[in-house]
Simulated assay, not measured.
Amino acid sequence: MRSEFKRLLFSVTSAIAIATLPTITQANPVNARITTAFGALQGKMLGVMSGTATLGQGPGFASQFDVSAGGTKDYGFYAGTGRMGFRTQDYNYFGVVGSAAQINGGAGSLGYVGAEAQAHFENLTVDGLIGVQMIDDVGSVMGGATASYFASENARFYAGYRYLRDNHIYAMGMEFKPDTETANGMTMFADLRSEKLENASVMAGVRFSFAGMQTLVEESRGTFVNNSYLLDALLPD
């Protein structure tokens, strides 16, 4: 039964990818980002590497694809996410998303399909996602929200809440982009996810963006969608 739902979820993400093919023929810009991070999950060393590609930028149709892989000393995991949606003139965003993660540990595999949105209020950005779980706990409602405060155009502090597998998970973190030409495209970040004190993940890492000379505000609001539930999914069920 589980394999059938995995095939269904990957079919959904494939459909999202196929639906975005017209953007390629329209010669929309392709932007990419690489993320590498290390941390701890329940006291065990955790490493993650991710790649992101976006098609389209600014107002109009946009799509994004993310792949991630990593693990602890006990198990490995990999995940893929596809999304497509629309940005308005003021860079608010609304779209659909499909994601699947194979986790070879106690947390179990996870997938979901849903809708997500992003809205901006001067220095404040709010991200929200509502969806339905697939693979495990099929049909269960999941989702979350994150509020980000931009202390400057290159510094972001955020806090959020996720509801996943009937668990209440809390998130907080920060991002900082050095304001120098030599550091163009590099962003440093730290992140904490916690379901309870004994079930927590903490991570710090670096992102390298190939989207040109953009501030962190421009990347976060106009180029990349940062909604990821992979760290939340790693917390034991």
Rank of each mutant, 00 (worst) to 15 (best):
N167Y: 01
H120T: 06
A115F: 13
L129P: 01
F210Q: 02
R162K: 11
F224S: 12
M188D: 10
V126F: 01
F210L: 03
D127E: 10
N227L: 05
L216F: 00
S148H: 11
L197G: 11
F189Y: 14
L216M: 01
D166H: 00
L124D: 08
S148L: 07
D179I: 02
T182W: 10
S194R: 05
A115L: 11
V202K: 03
D232I: 11
M134I: 08
Y170D: 00
A117W: 15
T182E: 15
A211L: 09
E219T: 05
S220G: 02
D137P: 04
V225D: 09
Q118V: 09
T125P: 01
A119N: 12
D136A: 15
I135S: 10
S194P: 12
Y163V: 04
V202T: 12
G185H: 14
V141M: 13
L197F: 11
A117T: 12
M186W: 09
T180N: 03
N154A: 05
S148N: 07
T182N: 03
L231C: 12
S220L: 13
S201D: 14
L124S: 04
S220R: 03
L192A: 09
F121V: 07
N123L: 13
E219H: 08
R193G: 13
G139L: 07
A147I: 00
D166C: 00
A119C: 06
H120Y: 10
E116D: 05
A183I: 12
F157E: 00
I169Q: 10
D136L: 12
R193F: 07
M186N: 02
Y149Q: 05
E181Q: 01
E181C: 00
D179L: 01
E198R: 06
M134S: 13
G139V: 15
D136Y: 04
G131Q: 13
N226R: 09
S152W: 07
L231N: 07
R207S: 06
S148T: 03
A211N: 14
A155P: 13
A115M: 11
N154L: 13
A155I: 11
S220Q: 11
E198L: 11
Y170L: 01
S209W: 10
V132Q: 15
L230K: 14
L164V: 03
G185I: 07
Y161E: 04
E122W: 13
G128Q: 06
L231H: 09
S201G: 14
I130A: 15
I130S: 12
L124Q: 04
G185K: 12
D127A: 10
G128L: 04
S152Y: 02
